[in-house]
Amino acid sequence: MQTLRLMTFFLVSLLALPVAVVAEAKSTEIVVRAKSKDAKFIGTSMGGAMVRIRDAESGEILAQGLTEGSTGNTDLIMKEPHRRHQSIAEGAAAFRTTLDLSEPVFVTVEVLAPYIKKQARVAAQTQVWLVPGKHLNGEGLVVEIPGLVVDVLSPQTHRYTELSDAPFEIRANVVMMCGCPISDGGIWDGSKMEVAALVKKDGHEFATIPLSLTDTNTFVGELKPKSPGVYQVLVYAHDPRTANTGVDRVSFIVK
Rank of each mutant, 00 (worst) to 15 (best):
T3G: 13
L4T: 14
R5S: 13
L6V: 12
L15S: 09
V19S: 07
V22Y: 12
A23S: 12
E24V: 14
S27L: 14
S27C: 08
E29Y: 03
I30M: 02
I30N: 00
V31K: 01
V31Q: 05
R33L: 08
K35Q: 10
D38R: 09
D38K: 08
F41S: 05
I42C: 11
S45Y: 12
R52V: 00
R52E: 11
R52K: 08
D55N: 13
A56I: 02
A56T: 00
E57M: 08
G59T: 05
E60I: 01
E60M: 08
E60A: 14
E60N: 14
I61W: 02
I61L: 06
L62T: 03
G69Y: 02
S70Y: 03
T71N: 10
G72W: 13
I77C: 01
M78E: 14
M78Q: 15
S87D: 14
A93M: 06
F95L: 09
R96L: 13
L99M: 06
L101I: 06
E103I: 00
P104W: 12
V105Q: 04
F106H: 14
F106Q: 05
V107N: 02
V109W: 00
V109K: 02
E110G: 00
E110V: 10
V111W: 05
V111N: 07
V111C: 01
A120K: 11
V122A: 10
A124Y: 00
Q125V: 01
Q127G: 09
G133L: 11
K134Q: 08
G138Y: 03
G138F: 06
V142R: 07
V142N: 07
V143F: 14
E144K: 08
I145A: 06
G147N: 04
G147V: 08
V152H: 09
L153C: 02
S154M: 09
P155S: 08
P155R: 14
T157D: 13
H158A: 12
R159S: 09
Y160P: 01
A166C: 01
F168D: 02
I170L: 10
A172L: 13
N173W: 00
M176W: 03
M176A: 10
M177Y: 10
G179L: 04
C180I: 12
S183F: 05
G185H: 12
G185A: 13
G185F: 11
K192F: 07
L198H: 12
V199E: 00
K200R: 13
D202I: 11
E205I: 08
E205S: 02
T208Q: 13
I209S: 09
L211E: 01
T216A: 10
N217G: 12
T218K: 13
G221D: 07
K224M: 02
P225D: 11
S227L: 11
P228G: 06
G229V: 11
P240A: 06
P240W: 15
A243N: 11
N244R: 07
V247E: 13
V250R: 11
S251A: 15
I253L: 07
K255L: 15
